[in-house]
Each structure stands twice: as structure tokens, then as C-alpha cells.
């Protein structure tokens, strides 16, 4: 359980230490990709808590969502429509929903555990 979080932190530190930057015009794509990745991560967490986690869905979802978001942003720039706003909106809403469900599941788990300990 702690392994992925450790890796997340290692990734952040690695990125900060290497000091890699991307050009200004591409930062839009990356920001949307980050949002999509976060969405997938929280989706995976939620699925794990609901016991419906699937390895394949998680992995394919991650890459597919990230590339779709970047493509949407690219298309938006080409057509002159702010399509990346649609991606931000969709991922943002899903992020909040997933977080809400994760919170509820964790609270339920906690309540169940307390109930068990009091009955003993």
C-alpha cells in the first residue's frame, strides 16, 4: 500500500532535482496530462476500495486518458476552440466524485472496524 506513495514522492523529488523544464507552449498539454493521470490514480484507488480493481483497466486507462487529454488540447489549439477546458472540466468533476466516494468508503470501513471492536 505504501509502495506507490513512496514512488510518487521519489518521482517528485527526481523531477525537482533534475530540473527539467518544458517550453511554455507545451505546458498546457502537460497540465492536462497531469490532471488525467491524477484522475486515473484516484479512480484506481476507488476501485481498489470497492474490490473491483482490474490491473488491465487501470493501466490502459492511465495511458489512454493521458493521451486523449493531450490530443484534445492539441485539437483545441489547432481549431481555435478551448477544448482543453472540456478536459479540465470532465477530469475535475470526476476527480471530486472519486474523492467523495473514497472518503465515504474509508469512513464506512472505519465505522465497521469500530463496531467490531466494541462487540468483542
Amino acid at each position: 500500500m505504501w509502495f506507490p506513495i513512496l514512488f510518487l514522492i521519489v518521482g517528485v523529488i527526481l523531477g525537482l532535482l533534475t530540473n527539467i523544464t518544458i517550453p511554455d507552449q507545451y505546458s498546457n498539454y502537460l497540465s492536462i496530462a497531469v490532471l488525467a493521470a491524477l484522475d486515473t490514480l484516484f479512480g484506481g484507488l476507488r476501485a481498489q476500495l470497492e474490490n473491483t480493481y482490474s490491473h488491465r483497466i487501470f493501466l490502459s486507462g492511465f495511458f489512454f486518458n493521458v493521451s486523449l487529454a493531450a490530443f484534445l488540447a492539441f485539437l483545441g489549439v489547432q481549431l481555435g476552440i478551448d477544448l482543453y477546458l472540456a478536459a479540465i472540466f470532465a477530469f475535475g468533476v470526476r476527480l471530486f466524485q472519486n474523492l467523495a466516494i473514497i472518503r465515504r468508503l474509508l469512513l464506512d470501513k472505519y465505522a465497521n472496524r469500530r463496531k467490531k471492536s466494541t462487540t468483542f
Binding site: P4, F7, V12, L14, L16, A37, L59
Partner: peptide
């Protein structure tokens, strides 16, 4: 995947 996400964020 988490490593990748962390890298992207930073």
C-alpha cells in the same frame, strides 16, 4: 505509474 505522475507534476 505513480513515479511517472510524480515526475510529470514536478
Amino acid at each position: 505509474v505513480c513515479l511517472l505522475v510524480g515526475l510529470m507534476i514536478s
